[in-house]
Amino acid sequence: MKITILNGDLETKKSDFSDYIEELVKQFQVNNHIVDVFHLKKMELSYCHGCWNCWWKNPGLCSTKDDAEIIFKSYINSDFVIFASPLYVGFTSSSLKKISDRLIVLLHPYIEIRNKESHHTKRYKNYPDFGLLIKEEDDTDKEDIQILNDIYDRFAINFHCEKRYLKSVNLNTEKEIVNASCNI
């Protein structure tokens, strides 16, 4: 399998979370999976400007020239994606959210009715399922987890895929994440 990991850790130096991701990559590789891992805060990544050039000027292409292009390619050509981030004020990091916003480049502007709601149609044939890997804050509670689950379920509807899990580095080993990602 080809796996893309989007690491939204805002700490650019050594951290427990990024150490965990490093070990997770090793575990995937031991199992012969190909992994692209991106530590977003260490990359040159702008936010989505909402220009919609990707929808009506250069269809499918983001006009912001930075490191995002390599992420778009990795994401859409993966079998599985992991959105990984410590929680900051109850949600995944701003770095992860900024690149998530820019993933609209992978959708078509046309609207269709799905789940009795309006959603954008596919641009690509297939979209990878994903898992959400978090590190809880000291005050994270059940309500926060429910909010995260709900919002990433919504993301899955919009991005024509399924959220397969929400797991926490506080509770799950790297091996468990590999198994959950690959359905072993």
């Binding site: 805002l10 936010y47 909402g50 900051y88 770095s95 959210k97 916003d101 919504r154 919009n158």
Partner: peptide
């Protein structure tokens, strides 16, 4: 703010992180 991929835009999330 406008809804961006089912949430606040990334720049608004950064603002929340700042004020926290």
């Amino acid at each position: 703010f406008p809804l961006y991929t089912d949430m606040m835009p990334g720049i608004v999330k950064e603002f929340f992180e700042d004020i926290s």
